[in-house]
Design a binder for these strands. Structure first.
Length: 652
DNA sequence: CAAAACTGCCTTTTT
DNA sequence: GGCAGTTTTG
């Protein structure tokens, strides 16, 4: 453990103030690159130095990655003591509480997790049952509305009360049915973790008091991303002692579209009267040119804490803007630039990042990077769990773990194809609704009573045998990996992959995904002595796949702005800085231009030394070539007004 | 019931 | 332009 003076030595006065202000509510406004993580970890150690036991400190983050990083840094500062600090994501914290108090919430002791694509198919199923055509209600729109309701702590009944038209009523009905479905299937979605925890603390004063007694000091990272349920949970825990320290940057709030509420960080001093405010404004990442550009842009936002970043490094190269013909030229210019710099030994591939607004933009870059033979890694994009193979195998495991999980059952019932077609499934589903039973149970019944078509009889027999074998083996606490291997063989999944992808190379790539999943299981088994299936599934869903953590690989990073938050690169290319892309077309309609501006701000502040922004004069959109106009943010940055022939995003 | 042809959609993404 | 979901065909 470091001593007090050692701890504080490397800190600037503002950081020191953030560390030393320990009691009561504290708001730390930590601009980009101002040493936020450092402040949180040192503050934690400082609390311990002052006599607070590590287990009395709660450190909440949003991502597992952030939690891990925090843990590592803490461990360097104070060794084994760091292990006793409660440090994790909101969701992992909530899941622990829900498991411990499940009976108070009327929940089963173990439950599955419904991710957003399961959520979408569940919602589609509810719409079908309500006989609502997908043409009149977009399932994705319903999904985000339901999630927004949950994020506002609104139950289905509240949604009914607030409904203003028929559409709202349909959504409310869908929400109601969706919740019934989740309960029936013994599954929780991500929002539910927060909602149930909130309910737990609201209705059980004993639990709340116990938590408040345990967590004498609470810190929250990335407070600008907090949503209402998270806020209420924390508020309940610190209700009396009010030792809450939140760290964040309102200028980097970019998750409003999924419920994060910037008003929480803007209104902290009102929510917690007497709060002390500390502003970290010294940026240790970028040159003054880059910081100036960022400041010029962000000051156009009206709802924010007044502040201005300054660079600790001083001047550097000027920020460049480049106009290119189209996205192909954009890609080839940047690739040429990277090659040029690397060949003159001015930089390594890993020093470069290409940042873009949308997930389809990387496409043009991928092909160009490949043909230029530049190593690159695409971060984010379609997640590991969205790949067909993973979803298939996982669905099998989820049915084995929880036979009530209907979404998963319906997915696997005819995957690989085993003669159980749509008509058979529909018949079973109708029966299931009628009897109020689960689809799997109904299928078993129909199989026993010989009510299935002959092909389906055979197919279902094989399926249920494979499931039963795996189930028995799980119950007997057999080795998880061998159970998994056996299952994959039993359902002839390798053959299925070969059948779906006649091209051997593609089949190979697809099968590699299954291998990767098996690796996950092996790792999990090694880490956990009691490697049970339910635990494995929960860890899988909760832990983002940390496979691309090969930081030492020397490759150019290609990613979206959302994925880039928290990272830094020597050279950054911010591409497609056009009206309609950044700001995105939809933001004009939805009135979220300020969030787009923050996205731009996040992008700019990723750069340490060199920043180049590009915009196209035309670009292929949905297969059609369309003219483009430079983003308003570029004009803001230069302090200029757009010319007369300029067209804003709302008219693109 | 499964493969082939066809249609319509299309921000961002972690837990 | 590309994918997923649906309809048509074998």
């Amino acid at each position: 453990m470091k001593t007090q003076s050692q701890l504080l030595k490397g800190l600037n006065p503002e950081q020191r103030r953030a560390v030393l202000t320990t009691d009561g509510p504290v708001l730390v406004l930590a601009g980009a690159g101002t040493g936020k993580t450092r402040v949180i970890t040192i503050r934690t150690v400082h609390l311990m130095n002052e006599g607070t036991a590590p287990e009395n400190i709660l450190l909440v983050t949003f991502t597992n990655k952030a939690a891990r990083e925090m843990r590592e840094r803490l461990s360097k500062l104070c060794g084994d003591k760091s292990k006793e600090v409660m440090c994790g994501t909101f969701h992992s914290f909530c899941i622990r509480l829900i498991r411990e108090h499940h009976e108070k919430l009327g929940l089963p002791k173990s439950f599955g997790i419904c991710d957003s694509s399961d959520q979408l198919s569940a919602i589609k199923a509810q719409l079908r049952e309500l006989r609502i055509a997908e043409t009149s209600v977009n399932p994705r729109a319903a999904q985000s509305r339901i999630s927004l309701y949950k994020n506002s702590l609104m139950l289905p009944e509240d949604a009914f009360k607030e409904a203003e038209d028929d559409y709202d009523i349909i959504i409310a009905r869908c929400y109601e049915k969706y919740q019934e479905y989740l309960r029936r299937s013994r599954v929780l979605d991500f929002d539910d973790f927060l909602l149930y925890t909130h309910e737990l603390l609201r209705d059980n004063e004993d639990v709340r008091t116990q938590l408040e007694k345990q967590f004498k000091y609470v810190m929250i990272d990335e407070y600008q991303d907090t949503n209402t349920p998270q806020y209420e949970i924390i508020r309940a825990i610190v209700k009396n002692h009010r030792n809450i320290c939140v760290v964040g940057d309102d200028d980097q709030s970019i998750y409003g579209w999924r419920g994060a509420d910037i008003r929480k960080i803007l209104g902290f001093e009102k929510d917690f009267p007497g709060a002390k405010k500390v502003y970290l404004g010294t940026n240790y990442r970028s040159t003054q040119e880059i910081i100036d550009a960022a400041n010029m842009i962000i000051k156009n936002n009206s709802s924010r804490h007044e502040k201005e970043l300054r660079s600790a490094y001083g001047p550097g190269e000027s920020v460049a803007i480049l106009r290119v013909e189209d996205e192909m030229h954009e890609a080839s210019h940047i690739c040429g630039d990277i090659r040029h710099q690397v060949s003159r030994e001015q930089a390594h591939y890993r020093d470069f990042a290409i940042l873009c607004r949308t997930a389809q933009q990387p496409r043009a870059f991928e092909s160009e990077l490949r043909s230029a033979n530049i190593p690159y890694k695409l971060v984010g994009g379609q997640s590991f769990f969205d790949r067909k193979e993973v979803r298939d195998i996982l669905s099998y495991l989820r049915v084995i773990d929880n036979p009530a999980d209907e979404t998963s059952f319906l997915r696997i019932v005819n995957t690989p194809p085993r003669g159980i077609g749509k008509s058979t499934v529909d018949k079973a589903l109708a029966k299931a609704t009628e009897q109020g039973a689960g689809a799997y149970a109904v299928f078993k019944d129909m199989h026993k009573e010989n009510e299935l078509p002959s092909a389906a009889t055979k197919g279902f027999g094989k399926l249920s045998e494979a499931l039963r074998t795996a189930y028995t083996s799980v119950q007997a606490n057999d080795d998880l990996v061998s159970t998994l291997r056996k299952l994959v063989t039993d359902i002839a999944y390798h053959e299925e992959v070969a059948r779906c992808y006649p091209d051997p190379d593609t089949a190979q790539v697809r099968w590699a995904t299954v291998d990767e999943l098996l690796n996950f299981a092996e790792n999990y088994q090694r880490k956990n002595e009691t490697a049970d299936l339910n635990g494995f599934l929960q860890e899988l869903m909760l832990e983002e796949s940390d496979k691309d953590d090969d930081d030492n690989s020397n490759a150019v990073t290609l990613m979206t702005l959302h994925a880039a938050k928290g990272l830094e690169f020597r050279n950054v290319y911010l591409v497609g800085v056009e009206e309609g892309i950044l700001p995105h077309k939809r933001s004009a309609v939805e009135g979220t231009i300020e969030e787009e501006r923050r996205l731009m701000y996040v992008g700019v502040t990723r750069a340490q030394r060199l920043l180049l922004m590009t915009f196209c004069t035309a670009r292929a959109k949905f297969g059609k070539l369309q003219g483009c106009h430079p983003s308003r943010f570029l004009f803001e940055m230069k302090g200029r007004t757009p010319p007369d022939d300029w067209v804003p995003a709302s008219e693109v």
